[in-house]
Design a protein around this nucleic acid. Structure first.
Lengths: 342, 342
DNA sequence: TTGAAAGCGGTACCAA
DNA sequence: TTGGTACCGCTTTCAA
C-alpha cells in the first residue's frame, strides 16, 4: 500500500543522480562503470524497491527469456513430471515458462500456439503432440521460432524430438524376466491404437525371438487402465493359458489390478502357502510412468522413463535451438531405467 | 523460412494504405471505422501473417493478460489437477499462465515471485504455500499486485485463500460408514505434522462424538504413503483391535496398501469365502486426491476434493482481484464430493 | 472516420 | 566512465 506507482529506471536514475543509460548499464553489468556509481545506483534500486520490467527490455532488444509449453495433459503423471523437469532447468537458467494445455486430442494446440506467439516467446515446446503437430512445425519455422517436440513415442522425423526408448524398455524388462527363468511371458494392457504400446511390443517380441522363446498372439491382451479390468483380464488369461509364468504390464494401474487379481485368485485356488503360489506361478513386471516408491507392495520389476530428466533434456535442447538458429534437426532418445525390488 | 523478419503494425498499415493508429483501432475494435478500411486492414493482417505483440501492448497501456503461478510441486496429482483447472479457466478468458515451482519447502518461492514480478504479471497465485507465504503477501501488497493463495488446509487469514473443506470431507466419509452400520471406525495414514490431516481428524472425531460412538486414540495410526507400510499397519491395527469394523484411509495409496493387506490377511485367515470375510470384517473408505476411476478395484467410498474446480475458482478469484483493486479479502472453502461404488 | 504524435520502460549507439 | 537520444511495437489522446 505504501507505493502503488511503478518504479522505473528513471526514478532510479533520478535518485542516484545519474542518467538512465548508466542505470541500465549497471543493471546489466555491461559497460565499465566506476564502483562508486555502481554503489549509488544499487542503493537507489534497493531503496526504491525497483523491479526491472523485462517486457520493455525484450521489446527493445533481445530475447524475452520466456519459452512456451503446450502440454497435452498436465494431469498425466508423465507430463506433470516432464513439465516439472522442464521448468526446473529453465529456471536454473533464469528463463521462465508459459504454460498452455493442448488437450488430449490437440483441440487447443493451435490456440495455445497463437497465444504463445503473441506473447513473444523465444521458443516453443510441444509435449504430447497430436495430429496438429506437423502443421505447427511448419508454422513455427515459417515464423522463425524454435520448436521442440517431446513425446512418449516416435513422432515427426523432420523436427526436434525427444522421446523415451520404448523398444529398449520392453527389451530390458523382458530380458529381466527371461534371466529369472521365465520362458512363457504374456503381455497385459494398453490399447492397440497406442504407438507407445506398439513400440514396446516390438521390443518384447524381438527379445523373445532373440532368446528363441515362444510367442503367441493370444498372450497379448488389451486392457483399459482400470484395476478392475486388469484383475479380470489377468485371471481370464491365466485360466486359458495356465502355462504362462510371467506377465508384462503396460502401466502401474494395470500392474496393481493384476496384482489384486492374483491375490484373489491365489486365495480362491486354495493353495496352502500364499508365497509359494505366486512365486511358483506368475511373476509381474511393469512399465512405470514415474518413480513409484509408493507402489511398493507390488512385487516384480519396473522399467521407468525418467520423465523429469527428459524435461531437462528438452530444456537444454530448446535453449540450444534458440542460441544457434541454424542448429540442425536432432532427435534424442532417453534410455529407460530398470528398477528391481527386494 | 519464407520470412524471418517480424511483421509489425507498421507493415500492416503500409500494406493496407492506412496509418498505424487505424490498424490499432481495427485490431482492438474500438474506434468507429468504416467497414471498407476494416476489410483492407484485416486482409493485410491475414496476408502478411501478422501476430500482435502483446508485450508492447501491455507496455503502453493496460494489463499483460498474464498471471503467475507459484506451485509447490507439480508432481503431486492434487496440484497438477489444480493447475490444469487454473489454466483452463484463464485460457477461456484469453489470459495466460506463467509457471514457476516453489519447491516442497518453499525454497524457490521467493525467486519465483521476483521472476514473476519482473515479467509484469497482473496477479499471482500461490498454490501450496510454505512459511514464506506471509512475507510474500506483504511484499505483494506493497507492490500493489493481487495475490491469491490456494492450499490444502487453512492458511493465512489476512489473505485471499481458497481451500478444501477437510472437516466436512471427513465428516461425510465417517457419516457414510456409520450409516452403513459401522460403529468402530479407525483411521489409517498421514503424518501427525500434517495440517490437512489434523483438520480431517477433527471432522472424524466430531462425527463420532455426534453419533455417540467410541473414539480411541490407538485407533488413529500414522503411516507413510507407502502401500507396503499401509498393508502392515492395517494388519497390526486389526490384530490388536479385532473389533474395528471400518478404516478411514488418508489417501489412495494408503487405501490400496490397506486393501492389499486385507487381501493377504483374508487368505491367511483361512476363511472360506473371500467375499464374506471382508464384508463382515473391515470396510474401507478413503480421501482421494483426484478422480480415481483407475483405482476401481478398491471397495468402499471415496471423498474427493474437486481440485480442478478449485483451480477454476482460483482463476475467478484472481481475476476479480485484478479487476477491482479494492475488493475485500475473501476466503473460499470448496466442498468435497462423496463417491460410493457399486 | 482517420492520421499525427507522444509516450510505456528499457537498451544501446554515439558523443562527450 | 557517463550522458543524450533514437528507437522497440503498440495504444491513445487530439486534430484534421
Amino acid at each position: 500500500m505504501t507505493q502503488m506507482k511503478k518504479i522505473t529506471i528513471n526514478d532510479v536514475a533520478l535518485a542516484a543522480g545519474v542518467s538512465v543509460s548508466t542505470v541500465s548499464l549497471v543493471l546489466s553489468g555491461k559497460g565499465r562503470i566506476s564502483s562508486a556509481t555502481g554503489q549509488r545506483v544499487n542503493e537507489a534500486v534497493e531503496q526504491l524497491g525497483f523491479v526491472r520490467n523485462r517486457q520493455a527490455a525484450a521489446l527493445r532488444g533481445g530475447q524475452s527469456g520466456v519459452i512456451g509449453l503446450i502440454v497435452r495433459d498436465l494431469t498425466t503423471p508423465f507430463y506433470a513430471e516432464l513439465t516439472a523437469g522442464l521448468t526446473e532447468a529453465l529456471e536454473a537458467q533464469g528463463r521462465m515458462l508459459f504454460l498452455t494445455q493442448g488437450g488430449r486430442d490437440g483441440e487447443r494446440m493451435r490456440r495455445g500456439f497463437e497465444a504463445l506467439m503473441k506473447q513473444g516467446v523465444d521458443g516453443i515446446v510441444i509435449a504430447g503432440a497430436a495430429s496438429e503437430g506437423a502443421a505447427l512445425r511448419d508454422e513455427a519455422n515459417r515464423l522463425g521460432v524454435p520448436l521442440v517436440f517431446a513425446s512418449r513415442a516416435s513422432y515427426l522425423d523432420d523436427a526436434d524430438n525427444i522421446r523415451p526408448d520404448n523398444h529398449q524398455a520392453a527389451q530390458r524388462l523382458t530380458e529381466h524376466l527371461i534371466k529369472r527363468g521365465h520362458q512363457r511371458i504374456a503381455w497385459l494392457g494398453g490399447r492397440s491404437s497406442s504407438l507407445t504400446r506398439a513400440e514396446r511390443l516390438g521390443g518384447y517380441c524381438a527379445t523373445l525371438l532373440q532368446y528363441g522363446l515362444p510367442f503367441h498372439s493370444e498372450w497379448i491382451v488389451e486392457c483399459e487402465p482400470s484395476q478392475n479390468q486388469a484383475a479380470q483380464a489377468i485371471n481370464a488369461l491365466l485360466r486359458h493359458n495356465p502355462t504362462i509364468s510371467a506377465v508384462l504390464c503396460h502401466n502401474a494401474t494395470v500392474a496393481m489390478g493384476a496384482w489384486f487379481g492374483l491375490l484373489r485368485a491365489g486365495r480362491q485356488s486354495g493353495e496352502d502357502s500364499f508365497e509359494s503360489y505366486f512365486d511358483s506361478t506368475v511373476a509381474l513386471a511393469a512399465f512405470a510412468e514415474v518413480e513409484e516408491e509408493r507402489l511398493d507392495d507390488i512385487p516384480g520389476a519396473f522399467v521407468l522413463t525418467p520423465a523429469r530428466e527428459m524435461g531437462r533434456s528438452v530444456a537444454e535442447r530448446i535453449m540450444q535451438r534458440i542460441q544457434y538458429a541454424e542448429e540442425p534437426i536432432k532427435s534424442q532418445i532417453i534410455a529407460p531405467r530398470l528398477v528391481t525390488r527386494k
